[in-house]
Design a binder for these strands. Structure first.
Length: 446
DNA sequence: GCATGATCATGC
DNA sequence: GCATGATCATGC
């Protein structure tokens, strides 16, 4: 079926070698004039995964099959064509999550991880990442990263946990409750022609949203920057235990609950500087055995953000929670789902909660993982919308305050008053951002 | 004690 | 030099 003259379809390395001939090139470099005009007529907007299909058909020259087997069956290699974007800094980032195939609810309910159809299809991936650019024809996208990818043993441990969590929900007849926030590396993202696509599930009469396995952009990001590994530190001790990931983390903090922060520092013998502005975060990392300057690899891949919260005696956080400043000229054109604020607040949080005691010293109170519930995301969206409305109305004195919402508000976030961004009206305003209200955080952590 | 305005510290 | 996370200051 596959073209033997081009590559050996039983050998992953041979397939990869042939694929790499597309490095820094685009598909139209390899097509005949006739082929190009044929492809140009295809409307990719109507054909999701269009470029991937064309790569299969015209570059690897085999017929597409939606089989449960990998694309290059004899070599066990699955082809994935996925976009990158370039940041203003020049850094490359995944543009979107990597979708790995529809979850068959009826099938997965009776599967085991080791023999799962997911593993069978996706153990070895030929990742072909191209640079997306607006207005560029998809035949002219340049491929920048082409690599064979298989998961590390440690990653598979966490993916197994994710996969089982998804399966168990389906088994319990609750496929309609699946959510991407449930899991760490392997997500169950909605998938279909529109958001209303549903399918049957085995142990319930309720039709559930159609979903597919996916890898988060943050996970893919680490594939891209493999060479920068020294920035990250894996929680190596976790893999020697049989804990679930979140349970392991929570359990690590257990024996320090109620202790004063300097006492924790002393017991850990890490000698952290109590005057540092990031002292609480550093101590929290030290509890997990992570160096203060390193990032927790698993948190990065799973897109979990650790926040150290200091509560006052009465249980209210000392501070509201800030997010990156928005640009007045950009926010007014953004969609909620693409906005930076949405991206940040829809992450999974790991709260390490400290509280001041009567003696004014700081004590470790509690830790918790948390995802913002949908109804609060909706409320945050309301604030975000109102912000845009008032920017458009040139009404910078009345951006949404705490009176407007219990969840979120707008406030300055700048180096000083002169630190400004241009407005759509051509003026300048002090940089501002959306904040989560301390009162809202209080409700969550208590 | 809170809301709002203003600014600091750190890392890249 | 700037973005980002974190914190301080003021007035009611």
């Amino acid at each position: 079926m596959q073209n033997q003259a081009l590559y050996d379809n039983t050998d992953p390395r041979s397939i990869e070698k042939y694929a790499k001939k597309l490095s820094n090139k685009c598909l139209s470099d390899f097509l005949s004039k006739k082929g190009i005009s044929k492809c140009r007529k295809i409307d990719v907007r109507k054909r999701k995964g269009g470029l991937g299909n064309l790569i299969e058909e015209f570059y690897f020259q085999y017929k597409i099959n939606p089989n449960p087997e990998p694309d290059f069956n004899k070599a066990g290699v699955e082809l994935k064509v996925t976009p990158l974007k370039k940041l203003k800094s020049g850094e490359l980032r995944p543009k979107e999550r990597l979708v790995m195939g529809i979850i068959d609810y009826k099938k997965i309910a009776n599967e085991k991880w080791k023999s799962s159809s997911f593993l069978k299809k996706n153990s070895l991936i030929l990742l072909m990442m191209y640079l997306y650019a607006k207005g560029v024809n998809f035949l002219d996208y340049i491929f920048l990263i082409i690599t064979l990818w298989s998961y590390s043993k440690n990653d598979l441990r966490i993916m197994k946990e994710d996969w089982e969590k998804i399966r168990d929900k389906v088994k319990a007849g609750k496929a309609e409750e699946l959510s991407e926030g449930d899991t760490l590396y392997l997500g169950a993202c909605t998938k279909g022609v529109d958001k209303t696509s549903t399918r049957e599930q085995p142990h319930s009469s309720i039709r559930a949203k159609q979903r597919a396995f996916s890898l988060k952009p943050t996970y893919l990001r680490l594939i891209i920057s493999r060479e920068k590994g020294e920035k990250y530190q894996e929680l190596t001790d976790f893999y020697k235990t049989s804990f679930k990931f979140e349970d392991y983390i929570i359990q690590k903090f257990q024996k320090y609950l109620g202790l004063e922060i300097n006492e924790i520092n002393k017991r850990l013998k890490v000698d952290l500087n109590p005057k540092s502005k990031t002292y609480a975060v550093e101590v929290s990392k030290a509890i997990l055995g992570v160096h203060r300057k390193k990032q927790i690899a698993e948190f990065e891949k799973a897109n979990i953000v650790m926040k150290a919260i200091r509560l006052k005696k009465n249980g209210t956080p000392k501070e509201d929670m800030s997010f990156p400043a928005f640009k007045y000229k950009e926010i007014i054109h953004q969609k909620w789902e693409d906005s930076e604020f949405y991206e940040k607040i829809s992450q999974k949080f790991f709260f390490v909660v400290f509280q001041y005691g009567e003696d004014k010293k700081l004590y470790l109170r509690n830790v918790m993982f948390w995802n913002m519930p949908n109804k609060d995301l909706k409320e945050a969206k309301r604030v975000w919308r109102e912000t845009i409305k008032r920017i458009k109305a040139n009404d910078y004195k009345n951006l949404p305050s705490k009176k407007f919402s219990d969840v979120s508000h707008v406030r300055p976030h700048a180096r000083n008053k002169k630190d400004v961004y241009e407005t759509p009206q051509g003026g300048f305003e002090t940089k501002k951002c959306l904040w989560l209200n301390a009162g809202y955080i209080k409700k969550i952590v208590n």
